[in-house]
Design a protein around this nucleic acid. Sequence first.
DNA 1: GGAAGCATATGATCCAAATCATAAGTGATC
DNA 2: GATCACTTATGATTTGGATCATATGCTTCC
Lengths: 188, 188
Amino acid sequence: MLPDPFSHLSATACRTIDMQKGDVLFRQSQTTSGLYRVVSGCVTLQRTGLGGDTLTLHRAMSGGFFAEASVFSATYHCDAVCTEAGSVTKIAKANVVATMHSNPAFSEGFTKLLAVQVQQYRAHIELLAIPSAKERILAAVQAGYFDTTVIELATRINLTHEACYRALRGLCDEGLMVRVDRGKYVLS
Amino acid sequence: MLPDPFSHLSATACRTIDMQKGDVLFRQSQTTSGLYRVVSGCVTLQRTGLGGDTLTLHRAMSGGFFAEASVFSATYHCDAVCTEAGSVTKIAKANVVATMHSNPAFSEGFTKLLAVQVQQYRAHIELLAIPSAKERILAAVQAGYFDTTVIELATRINLTHEACYRALRGLCDEGLMVRVDRGKYVLS
DNA sequence: GGAAGCATATGATCCAAATCATAAGTGATC
DNA sequence: GATCACTTATGATTTGGATCATATGCTTCC
């Protein structure tokens, strides 16, 4: 596992924020104020297209971070929306920068966090390049993408939910996957 | 522009490597030895799928870096192939880690480099989510993706080159783009 | 308990992009 | 200057996923 670089931050640098489902922690183009860590619940980073369609860029669960890159950016590049009630700790931008200068261990940990994200994104782009819906879903399931609903899986891998249901059905028919329950499929 | 974090590295930490088109600097699953900066020419990071199809994950031009994330990884996650003759400087992994500990300015610069990549990848994923070929191409051209061949543009944005040519033609017919020359299109 | 909202699921139809095919233009190499 | 390799370009056909439609199961909430 990743070492926690934020154990080096003083408690005063952090602020805990409770959130309800649907709460918006920040919006695109707002001035950045810091980065976040999920204590409990779930937060998604999403962007809204011109047609009102939302695109999920990242999903942070308990222990996960989000808006790390915001530390070097003047404005947020997407919306952060709570999708599951819980709480987050917010680490002020200034504190991150200051600690990065004074504490090499924190600095390395934070950098590593970003490096891991880079690799995750690369893997995701590779996944999106798989042309066949069935193969793409298979790869996504193997990568652990399918942890909530079929609809969410579908949007994450650029498919309609209908196509996703059908492909899952097809994979079950081919014996590559098994339908365990309503909306619950696993690799066989 | 980005400040160059590598100006903080001693000259002895770097090694210059000349390369010809087609040269492989490293391959997927090889043990990581360091990160690279392109002095001249062009290098692409690519992965080869099961069917022998190649997927370009990143392209580094003069002044650009690649394999930054490798510093925290035991093995490379893709192949680095020279697509345009030139040279690169290789910075040994150990040097990067050591300098990160001793030099906060370097550390911050390096971290920023990764943060920028994270945002670039996010933007790319967003681009790939555009369903219409024409709109996707338009967004890609606006983002400066179309700097070499149509074929390369097509593969970068998950289209066949045929679909890409046709969409470009369509965009020209609609007056949104202009065909300047063979294989050369610009926004109008 | 009934209504509302959402996820699940599948059928029918349509269309855009993939696939297959062909050809011309361009640059490099012998 | 002939050949080879590659990009550009477009036509014909096919197909897989999008779209539209419908129905059911499961929560939640008044």
